[in-house]
Simulated scan of single mutants.
Amino acid sequence: MKDTGSAQDAEHEVTMLKVISDLDADLNNVVKFHERVDMSLYDLLEQREWEHHPLHEIRPVAKQGLGVLHTDIKPDNIMFVNMKDQPLRVKLIDFGLAKMASQVELGMEIQPCGYRAPEICLGLPFSKAVDVWGVGCVLAFLYLAQNLFSFKCEYQMVFII
């Protein structure tokens, strides 16, 4: 039996990669279709034994901007291009859950818990700003070397917010 869910997921990601391929990948910090990347932000923190990052290393990671909602911004989906030659130059990967702004609907469950914007948790209208919230959570993760909010329980996350 063929796994149509995986095929549809792959097809969706290829479609989203085609949409963003019109953008300047380097200017918008998104991975090119056949680009090699080094390691994720999560991997770097693990390698540094969970030491927090100084602000001068976090600022370059904060740059972001796309015409689509990524909806899955987390440390695992932000990769370093080449730590040796371009330290701290990052690219956003994994557009499998990305949505065009016109596709978003009230009540959609998007974003991983712990990086989820309050308006998503509460079922309120949302915009591309939810990705900015996700980036903020990633930056806090880098600085604190731990998650700012619970990633196991949405109730605990909202309670802390």
Rank of each mutant, 00 (worst) to 15 (best):
D3G: 13
D131Q: 00
D38S: 02
V90F: 12
Y115C: 03
D43M: 11
E154C: 12
M79C: 07
G123V: 15
L124R: 14
E51F: 08
A62R: 01
A98Q: 07
E49P: 00
I73T: 10
G67P: 07
Y115D: 02
D76R: 13
S21N: 12
E46L: 11
E154A: 07
V81H: 11
L124M: 09
Q156T: 10
K99I: 04
D26H: 09
M79Y: 09
V135Q: 01
V61H: 05
K63H: 09
G114Y: 02
M39E: 15
V30K: 11
G114N: 04
T4D: 12
S21W: 08
L69M: 11
L17Q: 08
M157P: 02
V158S: 01
Q86H: 09
K32I: 02
G107T: 05
I73K: 03
P60Q: 05
Q146M: 08
D26N: 12
A101S: 11
Q64S: 06
G114F: 05
Q146E: 13
H12G: 03
P125F: 09
M39N: 14
W50N: 08
V90M: 04
V14T: 12
G134I: 00
V138N: 03
F151N: 13
K99S: 07
R59L: 10
K128E: 13
L23V: 03
L27D: 10
L23Y: 03
D24Q: 04
M83Q: 11
K84G: 13
E109A: 08
K32G: 14
P125R: 13
G114H: 03
K18G: 02
F141H: 02
Q47N: 14
H70N: 11
R59A: 04
T71E: 04
F95P: 00
F151I: 08
L66C: 03
L144S: 00
A145Q: 01
A117N: 03
P75W: 03
N82C: 06
E57D: 13
K18A: 04
V31Y: 07
D24S: 05
G96Y: 04
L139Y: 01
H34V: 13
S127R: 06
D85G: 03
P60N: 07
F80P: 06
L66W: 11
A101C: 15
M1R: 15
A117W: 08
L106G: 04
I110F: 01
K74M: 04
